[in-house]
Computed example of a mutant assay.
Amino acid sequence: HSVSEFILVGFSTFPPHLLPIFFLLFMLMYLFTLLGNLLIMVTVRSERGLHTPMYLFLCTLSISEILYTLAITPRLLADLLSTQRTIAFGACASQMFFSFTFGFTHSFLLTVMGYDRYVAICHPLRYSVFMSPRACICLVAWSWAGGSVIGLVVATAIFHLTFCGPNEIHHFLCHVPPLLKLACGTDVPVVALGVGLVCITVLLGCFLLILLSYTLIGAAILKIPSAEGRHKAFSTCASHLIVVIVHYGFASIIYLKPKSLHSQESNTLMAITYTVLTPFLSPIIFSLRNKELKTSMKKTFLSKLYPSGI
């Protein structure tokens, strides 16, 4: 390869006085994301009442969220305070592999969680059969395996291309579209089409499966005679549904935005919503919207702070 390193110029078009403000804001959001997800994981592990498939999946989702932010945010924060925003060829490939692996694992886990809610509401008597410990482990394992395969396919396809120069990536991370613009050779359009089709097919497939789950859940909830029963059934799905809307809402803003908005600043700010804001919002939504989890969090951490009083 004639290019041995890249320069990430995602934030170079912003006024320099804004960069420390961005750094502080993203740093706080990053720490909150880590803390929020760790709180969920510790609570689920501590409370025996939460040792159910729904919370196992939530715990795994928190792990994928932490790893996703670790793949992107520390580098982003370092670049905000640095004038040398270079990244080695191998480091760029690794970042792409891990960000796609954990990003797609996240999508698969959200799909699995939708299926879990469908079984719980539409087939409650057979829930323990469909969601046996072995079935749950298989669903989690397949989610991680699927994410890893997509991460490997995308990173291998992109970094097998030839990069002749220039080496400036118009983004704050090693993302597919800006890297494709730097690649040279006749196979670039084929790789671009292949990677695009893989990503869109998988994301759309996950979204349609979640949509199907909630269509069937909605039909089942409407058949529940009491208003209290309907509310109780819906409340177990609410946090997951909001996270799905946020996750796919921000993803669609990035991938389906009009071509006229393709300025450097708009690209960077839109990508920030997906890479920093979505992981930040996820633990907040699950903690605030899930009454059982919220109660368990209070109980777990109050018992740690005041062991004699609980």
Rank of each mutant, 00 (worst) to 15 (best):
M297C: 09
L24Q: 11
H1P: 04
S266T: 14
L152A: 11
L209T: 00
M41D: 02
Y306Q: 13
I87M: 11
F250W: 15
P15C: 03
M96A: 04
A220D: 07
S62H: 10
S282G: 13
S99V: 10
Y30H: 06
F22E: 09
F234N: 01
N267Q: 12
S303V: 03
A157R: 08
I87K: 05
T300W: 00
V44E: 02
G147S: 01
A88Y: 03
V243T: 12
H17A: 11
L34S: 06
S107R: 01
M131Y: 02
L216N: 08
M41V: 04
T300F: 00
L39A: 02
L180M: 08
L34V: 09
E292D: 09
C174I: 00
I66W: 02
N37K: 02
Y30N: 05
L109G: 03
T300N: 03
P307N: 01
F26A: 09
K257E: 01
H17T: 03
I210N: 00
T83P: 07
L293W: 05
V112K: 06
A93H: 07
L31M: 10
V129W: 11
F57D: 11
T268M: 14
G49W: 10
A135N: 05
V202R: 00
K299N: 13
M113D: 11
V244F: 08
H175N: 15
D116T: 14
L161A: 11
S62D: 08
F98A: 04
L24F: 12
T52Q: 13
C199T: 10
P20C: 10
S260W: 10
A155H: 00
L208F: 13
A271V: 03
Y118G: 01
K223V: 02
